[in-house]
Design a protein around this nucleic acid. Structure first.
Lengths: 365, 365
DNA sequence: CTGTTAGCGCTTTCAG
DNA sequence: CTGAAAGCGCTAACAG
């Protein structure tokens, strides 16, 4: 079923049929109607491949994300897919699993597929072979989640968000606060969040900060549990992502600690499932869907105007902080103001409980 | 950078260059090496679009899934993407959000894109306009998660799994068991699971079964909580999926019920996050990744052999049952054997706790 | 073993 | 307003 069939059927040339589909207004009313009727009757729709070959525009966007196993990226991809579909674009997603080689691979594939543009999240926006390659080929792209002054990025200010979280925990009375993160080396986003954590902690003299780096998600549970059973354990955990935060919740349960009475836990990402947990996860909420949609909109606008997205137009979207129920005052508050602390001594193993004092909301945006 | 450039550079015809990339063995060793060197030097890689137009094979697979917001489909898509990539195929995913019209839409897009085959999950495999359309166009397809005797499906026997779950709950002493499901009308998988639930419950005379149908995920929490505070509440909940199960856990907490002491909850899907919950979610584990991979393998094999995947070759993959920690004997066991039941009367609101009696594992596969 | 040639289905000048 | 014709980059006969 090609344009030729429709043309002969309608008694016109293929050029006319083409016009009917691409610039209907320049075709005479009745020929247009006739062609449309024939196309409809034959069930014809223009072949996207031929069109791409001819116009050198595929109406296809490449997407490179770390993994769908983290709901953050799944939500983002949903947003991308929805908006792209609305705009008549298809997407070709590839996953890097946080590995540079896969990242490079993916770019190669997309280049061969003549996608019109690329949305991607890289390990390190500062120096990425992938980005250089895209530039070489003059293929427009937008970074999602990464932040870098010289790259076009759609993201949230994770550094500020983490600083804010630390400030609130400090105000609640926490003195020993640990950041729980995946390998800092593997992700510039994780480093950014850690930087915010450091900055805020160091700006307050009485805070003792600590970094708990868990290289592999599998090994996280025992590592965390070990840390939490020691007497010098932190009273609050700031996690670099929600998946890690949920694991911390589990580790706390295994260590016999109640959240939030014995331990406060804050996540980062705002995955939907966190709202259903008990205690509900306190977390920094990123607008994942909006990040995806913004990337698409920006990229398509750039395509329309034939200019590459410029770093100076980068979007920093607003984040929110969900108070949740996993944060409260520390078990032994600072002696300064407030009622005298009651030391909790008997703590049954394998016990979890919601706070009986109302949770102090941290902040909403 | 086209085949022409490489050809002139290497001093051969474009046909030879093409051969070097498609059937290297029929090209003389040294011409082959020379061509390869030139291609490499020029950074040439064959244009996929032109190749598709010519060969009518795009090395692209269409994928239509309900949504990525459910980790089940995210995991499945990961599996699909990984295997497709391994085999040199790209994927074009589209999401139906459980709506027939979107499903049809998606098929239209994929048809225009000349994908080589389609992997999809439909609302109702028994009569689906989408499947009919694919057949009309002789586009090979495989269904994921759906089960139907006359369709090529890769799935798990949800009916048997649910029946098994009910049997074990009954053996634990549960008499009032409810199935919690999304709209049965919207999904043949949900209906299948419910059928297993019914069958198993009805085969045991003393079981009182009940269906709690929650049309919208948003409305689920109050509906469930309301049901759980009533004195005639079920002692066990069999949920049609893990997301719903997690919400049940939340509803139980809000209703002041401890899981599993006061209420047992079983999920379906085996999402990874369930393992980190406290109590760890008891659930039927589906091999989501393997389902995706199997779909790809089957479809590509069919493509290779130029035959459409046949219903008679459908794959029924093994499921597992994760014992977890969210199931135990009911609070007031049947009077027959065992110790006399202690009625729990004072139950503080907003309290959660892990079981203090060890959880009875249900089963592992 | 290699080159020539005819399209795949479509868009886009250029004439009329 | 419409048609003829020239390709987009590549593959696959068919000759040699």
């Amino acid at each position: 079923m090609s344009i030729q069939h429709v043309a002969t059927q309608a008694g016109v040339s293929i050029a006319t049929v083409s016009r009917v589909f691409n610039s209907p207004q320049i075709v005479a009313r009745d020929t247009r109607d006739r062609v449309r009727a024939c196309a409809e009757a034959l069930g014809y729709s223009p072949n996207a491949t031929a069109r791409t070959l001819r116009t050198r525009r595929s109406r296809t966007l490449g997407v490179v994300l770390p993994t769908l196993l983290n709901p953050v990226f799944a939500e983002c991809l949903e947003g991308i897919a929805a908006r792209a579909h609305q705009s008549g674009y298809a997407i070709v997603p590839l996953f890097s699993h946080y590995q540079r080689t896969h990242e490079a691979d993916a770019i190669g594939q997309l280049l061969a597929h003549t996608v019109d543009g690329v949305i991607l999240t890289v390990a390190n926006a500062a120096r990425s072979a992938s980005l250089a390659r895209l530039q070489d080929h003059a293929l427009p792209y937008v970074l999602a989640y990464n932040r870098h002054p010289h790259q076009p990025c759609v993201s949230v200010d994770g550094e500020a968000a983490c600083a804010e979280v630390v400030a609130w925990l400090a105000d609640l009375g926490h003195r020993r606060i640990a950041m729980v993160s995946g390998t800092l080396n593997a992700s510039d986003r994780a480093r950014q969040r850690y930087r915010g954590f450091q900055r805020a902690a160091d700006s307050r003299p009485r805070i003792r900060r600590e970094l708990i780096e868990v290289p592999f998600m599998q090994a996280a549970l025992p590592a965390l549990t070990d840390r939490l059973v020691r007497p010098d354990r932190p009273s609050a955990l700031v996690c670099s992502n929600d998946l890690l935060a949920v694991r911390c919740l589990r580790a706390a349960a295994l260590a016999g600690l109640r959240v939030p009475q014995d331990l406060s836990v804050v996540g980062f990402d705002g995955i939907t499932l966190g709202e259903d947990l008990s205690p509900q996860l306190s977390t920094v909420v990123q607008p994942n869907r909006a990040i995806g949609q913004t990337c698409v909109d920006w990229l398509l606008a750039a395509l329309r105007e034939r200019v590459a997205p410029s770093a100076s137009d980068s979007h920093s979207l607003a984040y929110g902080i969900r108070a949740g129920e996993s944060c409260a005052r520390p078990p032994a508050p600072a002696p300064a103001p407030g009622p005298a602390p009651a030391i909790r001594s008997q703590r049954g193993p394998d016990r979890l409980g919601l706070t009986d004092q109302p949770c102090v909301p941290i902040h909403w945006r």
